[in-house]
């Protein structure tokens, strides 16, 4: 099965479109990964907040529902810089690096071990809890492709594709 991770930024929603897209690179990566996800059929979504749910519905459209794919809508901390939504927390970079490493290596055990108390302080909840729940839902990861890994507005975004065994 295929799994795709995308961030839960509201900027992905058409209702919040600008003339000059502030997340054009991210959107391109998201669109490419979701297209890959849907190549094998419809996908289920995993999300932790109302806005993340809306993003999942927007991205999957009529292809949402029961199917072989899994779309995980979650991002990392929102405390990476002084201008980040949650201001700067020095622990955020390390937290995001660890989660990013787990995603890039298909390491489900590491995802399951995310510290949700720390995540809460880094404005990464409920998304961190969503990432934890991926572990155990999917088979072993056989291939990974990282489309995006950056924090342009002080919020850590990933777009990652997992190919999983059954």
């Amino acid at each position: 099965m295929r799994v795709v991770f995308v961030p839960s930024t509201l900027a992905l929603l058409p209702a919040y479109a600008s003339i000059d897209d502030p997340i054009s690179d991210l959107r391109e990566a998201v669109d490419a990964a979701v297209a890959w996800l849907l190549e094998e059929g419809p996908a289920t979504a995993l999300w932790g907040s109302g806005s993340a749910h809306r993003i999942a519905e927007h991205l999957l459209g009529e292809r949402g529902g029961h199917g072989p794919g899994l779309l995980v809508v979650a991002n990392g901390s929102a405390t990476r810089t002084e201008k980040a939504p949650g201001h700067l927390d020095e622990r955020a970079a390390g937290f995001d690096a660890a989660v990013g490493k787990a995603l890039a290596e298909g390491d489900q055990a590491a995802l399951a071990a995310i510290d949700t108390d720390l995540a809460d302080e880094l404005w990464a909840m409920p998304d961190a809890d969503v990432l934890r729940k991926v572990a155990g839902r999917v088979g072993p990861v056989t291939d990974v492709h990282v489309d995006y890994d950056d924090a342009p507005y002080g919020v850590q975004y990933w777009v990652v594709r997992w190919q999983c065994g059954s």
Binding site: Y16, S18, I19, P22, P85, Y153, V155
Partner: peptide, 12 residues
């Protein structure tokens, strides 16, 4: 009738 030029504040 026109979107903002570039809005990200509060959305990121």
């Amino acid at each position: 009738r026109r979107p903002p030029r570039r809005a990200i504040r509060g959305l990121a």
